[in-house]
Computed example of a mutant assay.
Amino acid sequence: MKILTVVSHPRVNSLTFSVAARFTQGLADAGHETEILDLHRSGFNPVLWEADEPDWSSDDRKIYSPEVEAEIERMQKHDALAYIFPIWWFSLPAMLKGYIDRVWNNGYAYGSNKLHHKQVLWLGLAAAPKEHFEKRQYDKMLSQLLNIGMADYCGISNSKVEIFYDTLDSRPEIFDKLLTQAYDLGLHYDKASIAATS
């Protein structure tokens, strides 16, 4: 399977990028092909201007800006998707949200067409402990937003949110555990039980 792995973090020496490296190693060891899209270093502009605003007056797919059309073409070359990002304010970073706003656009991802991808993994890194998320149901909120409000709406019913907690814990055993989990997610990407209701 060809999997597009999109990484959003301002620093390449971050835990987010270490997790992405282990995840993609797992994919490779399982025989998958992957392309890594580093949103920051690619120069992607997350700001949506008029050229990429959805056109609600027509059922035909609008021709978007060259930057967005290039990203749509990139997505079309892959069978599945993975997004790896820090969880900030209990949501996606602005860079990743802007990418989705612009690229998962009307007539391509929803509306007259839907995404063709078989599955999507949302891998978020949270500084807070699991108990903190569960206390106010932030984990369920994220799952509802990403699995139902975004992936399922755009035609991908096979969607899973995975949250790595306590990512500011600098103990080596915690760091190693997170990297092992990331590797396993890549190694078993197409074997995991993934559902939009999870």
Rank of each mutant, 00 (worst) to 15 (best):
residue 129 P to H: 04
residue 66 P to A: 09
residue 8 S to Q: 00
residue 6 V to N: 02
residue 132 H to Q: 12
residue 68 V to S: 03
residue 17 F to D: 01
residue 173 E to G: 09
residue 132 H to D: 09
residue 74 R to F: 05
residue 114 K to D: 15
residue 63 I to D: 15
residue 90 F to T: 07
residue 57 S to T: 14
residue 118 K to F: 05
residue 146 L to G: 06
residue 75 M to L: 15
residue 22 R to T: 06
residue 41 R to H: 15
residue 12 V to Y: 02
residue 115 L to A: 07
residue 159 S to V: 10
residue 14 S to R: 06
residue 29 D to R: 10
residue 55 D to C: 12
residue 119 Q to K: 11
residue 52 D to K: 03
residue 94 A to H: 05
residue 146 L to M: 10
residue 189 Y to G: 01
residue 131 E to H: 01
residue 154 C to M: 07
residue 109 A to K: 05
residue 75 M to V: 05
residue 30 A to F: 14
residue 39 L to G: 01
residue 71 E to S: 07
residue 177 K to N: 14
residue 155 G to D: 12
residue 190 D to C: 08
residue 89 W to M: 04
residue 173 E to T: 07
residue 23 F to L: 13
residue 136 R to G: 08
residue 103 V to G: 00
residue 58 S to K: 11
residue 50 E to W: 13
residue 163 I to C: 09
residue 89 W to P: 00
residue 84 I to N: 02
residue 49 W to V: 14
residue 146 L to W: 08
residue 13 N to L: 06
residue 186 G to A: 05
residue 74 R to L: 09
residue 134 E to S: 11
residue 59 D to E: 13
residue 148 I to S: 09
residue 186 G to F: 05
residue 104 W to T: 01
residue 186 G to I: 00
residue 107 G to F: 07
residue 171 R to E: 11
residue 164 F to N: 06
residue 88 W to K: 12
residue 98 G to L: 05
residue 186 G to P: 01
residue 106 N to Q: 14
residue 127 A to L: 09
residue 194 I to N: 06
residue 73 E to M: 03
residue 128 A to F: 01
residue 191 K to M: 13
residue 106 N to W: 09
residue 9 H to C: 02
residue 57 S to D: 13
residue 38 D to F: 01
residue 55 D to R: 12
residue 191 K to L: 12
residue 2 K to W: 02
residue 158 N to W: 01
residue 42 S to E: 15
residue 57 S to E: 15
residue 172 P to I: 02
residue 183 Y to H: 15
residue 85 F to W: 06
residue 70 A to D: 14
residue 169 D to N: 13
residue 145 L to R: 14
residue 138 Y to P: 01
residue 187 L to C: 04
residue 179 L to I: 15
